[in-house]
């Protein structure tokens, strides 16, 4: 099919270009669709669940999927579908909170380190090095273990572990951005360092941070589920995918749907964020812009 060239000649704003770039990537569109439906599911949870996610029905334990219980019931007779839908809320909350905290704090620290340089740079980056020397999940496990079980502590632990990558990437971008001509020009008209940092240097690091945040959502949700699986995160009766896996583990042979569906939910969510992140990376990278042959 031939594309209409005149329409492309119109200068479209940057955002539209990114959306265009994203549209060309099928997987990214699928990822975006899944993410949007997950968000809708989380928001509309009370209206779309078929059953109460916490109410116990001891007479209806370990039912296989049926019309009444589309994904079956768990060992305490709770509807798995309803619990999964409510679990979306928990996972997305954890993801947004942790990614928000880590992306903002990591970016600010990376910006400070890269722009100011010297001893401040050394201190921040050595802390980053130390934190990165540990495997992330293990360190989060230790921190969450020390703080005690609970969803808040898991978020805290993941935040402590997660900011380092943002700091590193942002610092790298800042180091190259601060040598650019427009930074010198901004100095020459008397702009203050603080102003230059936030107006001219930080935007240079924005697109990698957006990509990392999207990919980070997947990582965070997966890690939070892992910690919950180990009993450190969400506490019963809160419906959480990781802890659902954990409680279903004992019934692997008699009722495999207990772990199949939460597992699938985690996998689909993480995949969706990864697809979206990959797509965004391609769409936001100006170097990969294709030239149109006429």
């Amino acid at each position: 099919m031939e594309r209409a060239i005149p329409a492309r000649e119109k200068v479209s704003p940057y955002i539209l270009e990114v959306v265009d770039g994203l549209k060309e990537n099928r997987l990214a569109v699928v990822g975006l669709a899944i993410v949007v439906s997950l968000v809708l599911m989380a928001i509309l949870a009370p209206f779309i669940v078929p059953h109460d996610p916490i109410e116990l029905h001891l007479d209806l334990r370990l039912l296989s999927p049926s019309w009444q219980y589309p994904l079956g019931t768990d060992d305490l007779g709770r509807c798995i579908l309803s619990r999964l839908i409510y679990g979306t809320r928990v996972s997305l909350q954890v993801g947004v909170m942790v990614v928000g905290i880590t992306a903002i704090s990591g970016s600010l620290l990376g910006l400070t380190a890269g722009y100011l340089g010297g001893i401040i740079d050394e201190i921040i980056m050595r802390i980053v090095d130390v934190l990165l020397a540990f495997p992330g999940l293990i360190l989060a496990l230790v921190i969450a273990g020390l703080l005690g079980p609970g969803l808040f502590n898991v978020m805290l632990a993941l935040s402590v572990v997660g900011w380092t990558r943002y700091a590193r990437v942002v610092r790298g971008c800042v180091l190259s951005a601060k040598e650019r001509g427009f930074v010198e020009a901004a100095r020459a008209i008397g702009s203050s360092n603080f102003y230059i940092m936030f107006r001219h240097v930080l935007p240079e690091a924005l697109s990698p941070v957006i990509v990392m945040s999207t990919l980070g959502m997947g990582w965070t949700i997966l890690s939070a589920a892992a910690l919950s699986f180990l009993g450190l995160g969400a506490q019963p009766p809160m419906p959480e995918w990781g802890s659902m896996l954990n409680s279903g583990r004992a019934f692997l042979r008699v009722a495999p749907h207990l772990i199949t569906f939460p597992g699938l939910a985690i996998m689909v969510t993480v995949l969706a964020f990864n697809f979206l992140g990959d797509g965004l990376r391609d769409a936001l990278d100006p170097r990969q812009k294709k030239r149109v042959e006429i």
Binding site: R180, G181, F182, E184, A185, A186, R187, A188, I189, G190, S191, S192, R199, H200, P203, E204
Partner: peptide, 23 residues
Amino acid sequence: MRRIRGREIAMIFEQPATCLDPV
């Protein structure tokens, strides 16, 4: 010194393309 830059002494550079922030 910062208050003098831009207000009292201004400077034009060699390559205008790099001196304007593309964003």
